[in-house]
Structure formats: C-alpha cells, structure tokens
C-alpha cells in the first residue's frame, strides 16, 4: 500500500489534561510507531477478608 501524508499546518491553543494514565502517551511531535500495553489484575481472590495484623489501639 502506498499513501501520502501532507502536513499543511497544526496549531493548538491549549491542552488541559487531568491525568496521563498508566502506559499512555501525550506526544507533541512525530513518531514512527506507538505500542502501549498494560495488564491490570484484580482477580476475585485478590479480595481478602482478614483480621488486623497489628493492634489498632496501643
């Protein structure tokens, strides 16, 4: 496949971002490749009901 990109002009007034989260990118510029990968693990067994490990009051 052949394709042609003509960048005639790019002007942005202001960027207002709350958060750039894990494994994400804000790019003001050019790049060839971007590959963002993320694993987030919250399995059912990660919810543990236990007793306090140390006395809450001393």
């Amino acid at each position: 496949m052949k394709y042609t990109v003509i960048n005639r002009g790019l002007s942005v007034g202001q960027l207002s971002i709350m958060a750039v989260a894990s494994s994400s990118v804000v790019l003001i510029g050019d790049t060839q490749t971007v590959a963002c990968s993320s694993i987030f693990d919250t399995p059912p067994e990660s919810l543990i009901v236990t007793r306090p490990f140390v006395p809450i009051t001393t």
Binding site: Q14, A19, V20, S23, S24, V25, V26, G29, Q32
Partner: peptide, 24 residues
C-alpha cells in the same frame, strides 16, 4: 499544556521520536 498527573509508565513528550513502547 496543563496536566495534573503523569502516571506510572507514561510519557509527556514534546518533540519527535521514532519508536514508543510502553508497558505497565
């Protein structure tokens, strides 16, 4: 550019690059 937080394994990049590969 006004950003409150840049989290783990993330990038604010001003300028050009060749390859971006992020992992978390």
């Amino acid at each position: 550019i006004d950003i409150i937080g840049v989290a783990a394994s993330s990038v604010l990049h001003v300028g050009s690059t060749q390859r971006i590969q992020l992992e978390s």
